[in-house]
Design a protein around this nucleic acid. Structure first.
Lengths: 226, 226
DNA sequence: CATTGTGAAGCAATTCACAGCG
DNA sequence: CGCTGTGAATTGCTTCACAATG
């Protein structure tokens, strides 16, 4: 026991970012009754190279069988453990506009490990409304230790101008993992983890590549070659 | 003229991913009437190192003034051009459930350069409904060249099981830039660009780091040191 | 003379290629 | 024998540090 390399070793960020994808694919295979996969097969299903998959998994430990492959159930469990999904992560969403509503009712949210425990919004028109059976409350109640269950992860789904103030309150309430959907850069103290998801950033990156393709395919002559 | 390094040189992916952030911050500065910034100031506002900002910008061309800094308006324009935002990118959203609705009415969407031109959903209960003044239509109309304006970017906001089929239709209709919100890996032909935004992946990455922090801070003794 | 733009150094991630092993 | 696990090679990104310059 206690021999869990995932919790002892350093796992590269790039690897961590791919683990959820591996896990999702393994879960689907498990549902389909597939008992085992080779690194080649799993990598193909996820869209990475098999060498990369093997190196990623090697950071978690040695869960494959040479000459055979990986047991689907076992590997899924080990990845879940490495990601911390065997524990329970209570989530609060702040900002219950269109996006907040969508996030709250998003089925993928209920993935093993995460559980929405509170919804906040200061708009009096929204306070009291129930979404997925949870009442929307004003953000001020966040500070009331008796009114709110412990929260591990805060999701910010407010407009950009409100994001920093909301973030400060979440941090003040002891939350150190934040998922930010507002198009704003958040300043947080050391030790607080912020991940940002931004629609318009993604669109702009797509536009960049689309423009390159258009230039390459369309009017090659637009740029004079040296 | 035609001396636009952004369209000739190779710009690293990592740089492209940061350009939207620079642009957003510059736009805010421009609104506030700030005429110029140094790499130090801009980098601080965005949360990167100044050397990285300068190296990133150097891939676009030489738009700074030594000893002074960057003209906010000029730099914003050059980044817009590099990203292709001086052109118009018509967007279609497929899947008008909670998330699709939220995306359609998301104000950040109307950022310069992007314009929603069509909404699709095969659910008869949704077809005909108007969101942001656009009627929801069945996906079959996508193939009807007379019924649909040209589309550059397709956004998939359907449940995972439908995503691949929707993607195939989008690709079949000539769309080669896709933003996928469904938790599924899409298979696409060479030349088609897919970016995925996935809530549960982001939550899982946060959970991983939260777990590390908990282990580091809480019961250090759980793992026996060698 | 403060600040940019950039070679060179340092780091991190990916890919290769094969030894190790069930 | 086939497939995993991993050192070594490679590629790409970040940071440093300073020469170039308006």
């Amino acid at each position: 026991m206690s021999a869990d390399p995932a919790l002892r070793r350093e796992i590269p960020d790039a690897t961590v970012a791919r683990l959820p994808e591996y896990l999702r694919t393994l879960s689907r295979l498990a549902e389909d009754g597939v008992p085992s996969v080779s690194s080649e097969e799993l990598a193909a299903a996820v869209g990475v190279r098999s060498a990369q998959l093997r190196k990623d998994l090697s950071h978690l430990g040695s869960y494959g069988v040479r000459g055979v492959g990986y047991d689907v159930e076992t590997l899924a469990l080990e990845i879940s453990r490495a990601l911390g999904l065997t524990e329970d992560w209570p989530v609060a969403i702040v900002g219950m506009g269109n996006l907040g509503h969508a996030l709250a009712s998003y089925s993928g949210f209920v993935t093993k490990g995460f559980r929405i425990v509170a919804l906040f919004d200061d708009d009096p028109a929204l306070v009291g409304e129930r979404v997925v059976d949870i009442a929307i409350r004003p953000l001020s109640e966040l500070d009331d230790k008796h009114a709110v269950d412990p929260i591990s992860i805060g999701v910010i789904a407010t407009p950009a101008p409100a994001a920093q103030a909301v973030c400060d309150r979440l941090v003040g309430a002891g939350i150190s993992s934040i998922l930010n959907f507002a198009p704003a850069v958040l300043a947080v103290p050391e030790g607080v983890d912020v991940r940002r998801v931004d629609l318009s950033t993604e669109l702009q990156i797509l536009a960049f590549h689309a423009q390159r393709k258009a230039l390459a395919a369309g009017h090659l002559g637009a740029a004079v070659l040296s």
